[in-house]
Amino acid sequence: MSWLQRIFEKPWLWSFIAAFLVWLATIVFTRGQGGGELLTAALTFATFFVIVGIGQMFVITLGPGNVDLSIPATMTLAGSVAMKVMDTQDSMILIGLVVTIACGLAVGIFNYALILVLRIPPIIATLSSSFVILSTAIAYGRGLRIKPPPLLAEFTTVQVAGIPILAIVVTALAGAMGVVLHRTIYGRSVLAIGQSLRAARFAGIPVERIRFLTYVLSALLASLCGFLFSGFSGGSSLSMGEQYLLASIAVVVIGGTSVAGGSGNLPGLWGAALFLFLVQSMLNTYQLSAGLRYLATGLIIITVITAAGGQKTQR
């Protein structure tokens, strides 16, 4: 039983195993054809889930009640603004990046101002701000689909031996954020706050400052994702972020991060992101409709969180 036990001890392994099984099931249907392409597609699209997943993971790790529901809107805003500013010019890419970061900062500060000043629970704060942010994106972008600069488009789509460069970069990012979580004062503070808010206060941790930084981090990563995704998909669109709300939470939960807070899991984000994409494409391959795809995604997340259970102690 010991090797089985060791697997259960590492929740993120499940997600990779599950992803592998789903990939297998899809290949079975196509009789072995296109396995490699499927893997490449999975890596490509999962990359974007991982970027927002990192931000959402840090927020959720802060403890119960902390969720960022403004991620899709922030993605859309950053994508629209950046594309418009860059205006298909390679020379403007750096400016575009700066603008993206500015968007992320603005959204993060706005969200946290709502949480701190108006004492709104984070869920409601980010929900209502998402509407404001989305409107800003619509008003600014006017729905025009501006093409990304060719260099950006290339960067987000180029592959090496079937593996997208972007996936490698984001893996490195995830690795770096893992180090941040476990080996920096900021990361340790997040983990402490998620385990026990009161103990963190008494241990001298500046709780409000850490929460602020985390919401800004989440907004920054969402902006970055919008920037890159616009480059990847040939321009920003208003429905760009639609599936990212559930996806960002799903990859965090399925990847083994506890919704009770205090323990973040970065490798799991990749496994869960791959799993999520592969489930959707498997359902596509089996020619199941969009409705079933939504249904399946929702059921999976409910199953995972039911199995994981909630807080151990009654608050």
């Binding site: 080996r183 920096t184 004062i185 340790r188 385990q195 009161r198 008494f202 941790i205 205090g262 323990s263």
Partner: peptide, 27 residues
């Protein structure tokens, strides 16, 4: 108010002195 139940004994002790554990920017 005191312990961080998911952490090891070591981390529970060092959390009050994180600044002194730094080497560069990492603990």
């Amino acid at each position: 108010d005191g312990i961080f139940p998911l952490w090891s004994i070591a981390r529970n002790i060092t959390v009050g002195s994180m600044r002194r554990m730094l080497r560069g920017i990492l603990i």
